[in-house]
Design a protein around this nucleic acid. Structure first.
Length: 568
RNA sequence: UGGGGCGUCGACAAAUGGCAAGUCAGGAGAUUUUGGAUCUCCCAUAUGGAGGUUCGAAUCCUCCCGCCCCAGCCA
């Protein structure tokens, strides 16, 4: 056996860390952080970052902090803090006692700002927001120095102190870094580092009326926490020179910021703003609507933390912008649930079937395997009787080619029960719709095996009519029809691009009795249909299941091909 | 026309001057008491384009093309 690799996965970030360890940078330490702003719910894109930061720390025997980047009291709320903590935990990551808030450092930020002023590297500016924009210049033209740029240090000190003390109106003054108004990088054109905000902060209440900006707070927070590798998304690349500038000018411990491409997923949107809009416009039931790409939505949908972590690993980390096919996420959850989810039978659209040669008052308990992938999950008993329900889709009066399922005169297997043959079809006189089918069974095939070795190609699921439980099944599809709904017409057309069939509620489903009392969030495979999990709104009298994902359906593909052929 | 990035299969993504990995999707078949699962095979004469350096280039150089980000007192 060779030495186990410390980190088996490889990407440009892990490569950098390995190099740093080799060169002895940071004494071989690895310390990352996940720094959400508590202004919304976490989504699958954050999951990528969470998995990256926590996994990297773990792989290199380091640590990862959870830090709330709470420097904007206007948008941030305690509710989000709690939801974020729950989501990170649920994903399977812990931070022990390393829970931090940027707001914990407010006093230190202030002291560092004073230091900046003392070094002549910051000044209080009286420009209004409009004026500041005008002075900033444009992408192609340099900016102009603020008339307040050369205030004496003493005056700046005094003014900044008064800002803190609440002597000035909101928006009337800012503290700015004195860098370079002609820089090609707009972030370096004397960025604001403190602004006056008359807002109550979710943690510091009303103790402050000035709040630091992200660029100033973030690098110092990283430095205070002795972070080694500060991982963030690509759009912060232009901010790195500022990150470095603050720490260098202040002479502080200097972590390395490394940017990677954020996750984009097909057939959904990822921006908090757009997700918030869906919630506010009631296009979805809330942040945890099972169609949402939020962690809480995926949880309610029945996704496992393991599947999301596997997904994160499979998509990799790179600097190239990309759009990941949602089919990969779906594959990951199927892969996981296939091994773990107990199998049950449930009928989505029930069609009554009478087994005409089966005794009236008999009920048999038939043995069913809970998970063919895992023998340790054992078996269960499923009741069988003369009247059962089967799937309406499993019967065709006029079957197409390659149809293995039920049709007049055809024999199929009832899973774990008997071979049956369709002998009669009853129809509703008014609508002409098939209302009931009559079959005969072969008693010798009990359990589903034929002693004479004759084969049937089709096996269908069923539930005993008198034993089955009522249930509502909620079938979900992609939220957006278009692969990339953010591409093209911006924002306003978002609603128009929603998939009108993203949710289908099927209310008169019948499921096997073993599902009585199923726990919220527990997951099952409804054989031949898909994976489902119990919705938290489910009750003993009304079972509700969310379809996590369908099973692969090769018949659907065959049929589709047949239809395409016949069109030609 | 400023600054910063990025272009490898339909979608992700490796390859660090030496035979273009792997995964998803797609296709064909085997097998099957889930048309599930599993297994096998196929799917880039070629890395945005054109030149150049080199015995040898996705990788180094030059030019070109395309895409993304930045003008919040948001993060």
């Amino acid at each position: 056996m060779s030495e186990p690799e410390i980190s088996s996965t490889s990407d440009f970030i892990r490569d950098i860390i390995r190099e740093d360890q080799k060169s002895g940078k940071y004494d071989g330490r690895v310390h990352t952080r996940f720094p959400p702003e508590p202004n919304g719910y976490l989504h699958i894109g954050h999951a990528k970052s969470i998995c990256l930061n926590f996994s990297v720390a773990d792989e290199f025997q380091g640590f990862c902090n959870l830090r709330f980047d709470d420097t904007n009291p206007i948008k941030e709320e305690r509710e989000y803090v709690e939801a974020i903590k729950e989501d990170v935990h649920w994903l399977g990551f812990g931070w022990d006692d390393r829970l931090y808030y940027a707001s914990d450092y407010y006093e230190q930020f202030y002291a560092y700002a004073v230091q900046l002023i003392q070094h002549g590297k910051a000044y209080v500016c009286d420009l209004t927001p409009d004026e500041m924009r005008a002075y900033r210049g444009t992408l192609t033209e340099p900016g102009t120095d603020s008339p307040w740029r050369n205030r004496p240090i003493e005056e700046n000190l005094e003014l900044f102190e008064k800002m803190r003390a609440g002597h000035f109106e909101e928006g009337s003054k800012t503290l700015r870094a004195k860098i370079d108004m002609s820089s090609g990088n707009l972030n370096m054109r004397d960025p604001v580092i403190y602004r006056i905000l008359e807002a109550e902060h979710h943690r510091t209440g009303n103790t402050w009326c000035i709040y630091p900006m992200y660029d100033f707070a973030h690098c110092i927070s990283d430095s205070i926490e002795r972070i080694t590798h500060s991982l963030c998304t690509l759009e912060f690349e232009d901010h790195r020179p500022l990150y470095d500038w603050f720490l260098d000018v202040l002479g502080l411990y200097h972590p390395q910021q490394i940017e990677f491409a954020r996750l984009n997923l097909s057939n959904t949107v990822m921006s908090k703003r757009k997700l918030l809009r869906l919630v506010e416009e009631k296009q979805v039931s809330g942040w945890d609507d099972p169609r949402m790409p939020t962690i809480s939505g995926l949880r309610r949908r029945g996704y496992t933390p393991e599947s999301i972590r596997a997904f994160s690993e499979r998509i990799g980390v790179a600097r190239r912008e990309s759009l990941v096919d949602i089919a990969l996420l779906e594959f990951c959850v199927r892969e996981d649930l296939n091994k773990r989810a107990p199998r049950v039978m449930g009928v989505l659209r029930p069609l009554k079937m009478v087994i005409t040669n089966y005794p009236e008052d008999t009920v048999e308990d038939l043995k069913a395997i809970n998970n063919p992938e895992d023998a340790t999950m054992g078996t269960r008993k499923v009741p069988f009787s003369r009247v059962i329900y089967v799937e309406r889709d499993d019967f065709r009066e006029d079957p197409p080619k390659k149809w293995f399922r039920l049709a007049p005169g055809r024999e199929v297997r009832l899973r774990y029960a008997y071979f049956i043959t369709c002998v009669d079809v009853k129809k509703d006189k008014e609508t002409g719709e098939v209302s009931e089918i009559h079959c005969t069974y072969d008693p010798a095939t009990r359990g589903g095996d034929s002693p004479d070795g004759r084969r049937v190609k089709g096996t269908i699921h069923w539930v005993s009519a008198s034993h089955a439980l009522d249930a509502e099944l909620r079938l979900y599809d992609h939220l957006f029809t278009k692969e990339d709904p953010e591409q093209g017409d911006e924002g306003s057309n978002l609603t128009a691009q929603l998939n009108p069939y993203s949710l289908e509620r099927v209310s008169s489903c019948r499921v096997e009795p073993s599902l009585a009392g199923a726990e919220p969030f527990s997951r099952f495979q409804f054989e031949r249909i898909g994976y489902f999990s119990v919705d938290p709104d489910s009750t003993d009298t009304k079972l509700i299941f969310n379809r996590t994902v369908t099973l692969k359906d090769s018949w659907a593909k065959i049929e589709k091909k047949q239809q395409q052929k016949s069109k030609k």
